[in-house]
Amino acid sequence: MPTPFFRQPGVLADFIAQNRSRTYGAGLDPYAYERVTSRLTDLMDWPGAFIGEGRRQLADGERFEASGAVRSAGEAYRRAARWFHCAVLLPHPDREEAAHAARQADRAMDRALALLEPDAVRVEDDSYAGRLRGIAHAGRGVAVVVPGLDSSKEEFHDLADALLARGVAVFAMDGPGQGVRAATTTVDADYHHVMARVVDALHARLGGPVPIAVVGLSLGGYYAAWSAAHEPRIGAAVTVSGPYRLTGWDDTVPFVRETLALRSGSERAGREFVARVDLREAAKRIGVPLLVVDGADDVIPGVENGAGLAAAAPYGEYLSVPGGDHLLGNVRERWLPVVGDWIAERLRGAVS
């Protein structure tokens, strides 16, 4: 049954508008997005519409692969992964369908990389899953990309590509309550425990320690900053649209409350999680370079943006991008090269 979020007046048009730049930033074709969303008459039908488009892209990939067009097949599978991921951007009560879409996104990206980047390797345990790409450059350092509350490793392709182009290996991951792990785990405010296992696994895979940077987006920005404060093997961190703190459960909008209740397992657990998302004390412990990026127009009730984090961290830098919205999908050229260069420079400095 529709929840309070879905029963808000005008919610369909608002949700389509609010996710336009985000989905563009995730790599969806803008005309395809308009075509798919223009057919919707009820937001409850969003997952099915996006899954349907994902299946069409998947079928294209299979036809290309059968004909020997490997590049075209891999690109189609990658597009399919994006559509399947974007099917789960809302707190839909059908969690089986959401889990199915997340699995399809995961599998489609595996198929894409098998064709386009056969050296990519999967690294995972019960709490996280991810892919290590650009392994030939891993000696120079690895950037761990951490998604947010309703995101997954299939969303931030542009960021991963920008890092890879700068000679940085990338490990894009789903942690507890995220992506392909959302069906079996719940969100964890003590993300440094997850990050410690990730770093252990990367070092084991690569045959020894390598420089590690972490970049987190939206709630992933909290995870990244918290991990940098508590995991000593992280040498640099970036937050993009990340919260300095959440001011309280009742301050947040219905979308955030319902998504948190689903991703944490219950409203009570969601309330406890919100109370934990607070970097005021942890910021002082971040003893490594930290870049905090916010969109100047990113205003979400109940969320205190990152200016305070940058000011409190000993080596914090702050970039507020004029006109930028949440995740800054509408101004990518104003921050994406900056973040790519910043991480590459910090990792090179760690090697030298």
Rank of each mutant, 00 (worst) to 15 (best):
Y244W: 11
E231K: 04
T252E: 15
A236R: 00
R276E: 15
F255R: 14
A224E: 01
D251K: 11
D200V: 05
S266F: 10
R233C: 10
E267N: 11
T259Q: 11
P232I: 07
V274I: 12
E267L: 09
V210G: 10
R263L: 10
G220D: 08
Y222F: 14
A229K: 09
A228I: 03
V199Q: 11
V256W: 07
A269P: 09
E267G: 09
H230R: 12
P211S: 14
A213M: 09
F255S: 06
L202T: 13
P209Y: 01
A229T: 08
D250S: 14
L206E: 13
I234R: 04
H230G: 03
S266A: 13
T252V: 12
F273R: 12
H203Y: 15
A237C: 12
G208I: 02
A204Y: 05
G248E: 09
A229I: 07
A228Y: 03
V256I: 11
D251W: 09
G248T: 06
L260M: 09
R271W: 01
A237N: 06
F273T: 07
D251F: 08
P209L: 02
L260N: 02
V215E: 12
E231H: 03
V274F: 08
G220R: 05
E231P: 01
A224V: 02
A269T: 12
R197I: 13
L202K: 13
A213F: 08
V215F: 14
R263Q: 12
V274R: 03
A201W: 12
A224K: 00
R205G: 14
G235T: 04
L219I: 01
D200A: 10
R263I: 08
A225Q: 10
S227R: 15
H230Y: 07
P254C: 00
R271S: 03
A261H: 05
A204K: 10
G270Q: 05
L217Y: 04
V240G: 00
V215T: 15
